[in-house]
């Protein structure tokens, strides 16, 4: 098995080579570009928040959030643990252990769902509404877009889980796992930034 064939899943007939020049690492390059684009998106909304905040005189909302930190902190820790379990999933498949891979994928996925549920609960509890001044709108937008990304990550993990069960991954072929966990780390990292911006400053 040559290096090129190890990552490409193009449905090629016998005797047909993959397109020449398709280089290893394509999926990683693509993920980096996608995440760069995502960063501009989140960066835009976060700058909108900071811009509005800088021109705001009434900061009561931010203080209200800062007063009830227990649940968001617990949620954040949970999410950081999920990044570790995602890393363990990646390590399992690099060692060829498909069973451990499935297990860690499942744990990661469940932790992600618990996080989204926890944040939804925290949002409802705060009694904030998108129409509450400018801050309520930004808070709502950032929280919901992050939640959508979390759910996208959960879907990716679920697909990876099904494919792992079907025996799609081996120690040498696991690009989808690398991409999936890479996306997961990114969404966790975005949350850490959002937590600092929304709750701490």
């Amino acid at each position: 098995m040559n290096k090129t064939a190890s990552y490409s899943r193009m449905p090629l007939r016998p005797g047909v080579q993959p397109p020449a020049g398709l280089r290893p690492g394509t999926s990683r390059v693509t993920l980096l570009i996608v995440l760069g684009s995502e960063t501009v998106f989140f960066g835009t909304v976060i700058s909108a928040y900071l811009y509005l905040r800088a021109t705001q005189t009434n900061l009561a909302f931010t203080q209200q959030l800062g007063a009830q930190l227990a649940l968001p902190v617990a949620n954040t820790l949970l999410l950081i643990v999920s990044a570790l379990t995602a890393a363990l999933a990646g390590r399992s498949i690099r060692r060829g252990n498909v069973k451990a891979l499935s297990g860690w994928l499942l744990v990661t996925l469940v932790l992600g769902l618990v996080f989204v549920a926890g944040q939804a609960f925290d949002y409802l509890r705060s009694g904030m509404h998108p129409a509450d001044q400018a801050f309520g709108g930004v808070f709502f937008t950032l929280m919901s877009f992050h939640a959508l990304h979390m759910l996208a990550g959960v879907v990716v993990m679920a697909i990876a889980l099904v494919r792992a069960r079907l025996g799609d991954f081996t120690a040498r072929r696991h690009d989808a796992i690398d991409v999936g966990t890479g996306f997961w780390y990114y969404v966790v990292a975005v949350w850490v930034v959002l937590f600092a911006v929304l709750y701490l400053i």
């Binding site: 509005l52 009434n58 998108p130 400018a134 709502f140």
Partner: peptide
């Protein structure tokens, strides 16, 4: 009903 761009309600 958010107010991102509505100055009267804290937007800009």
């Amino acid at each position: 009903g958010t107010h991102f761009f509505i100055p009267q309600a804290g937007g800009n």
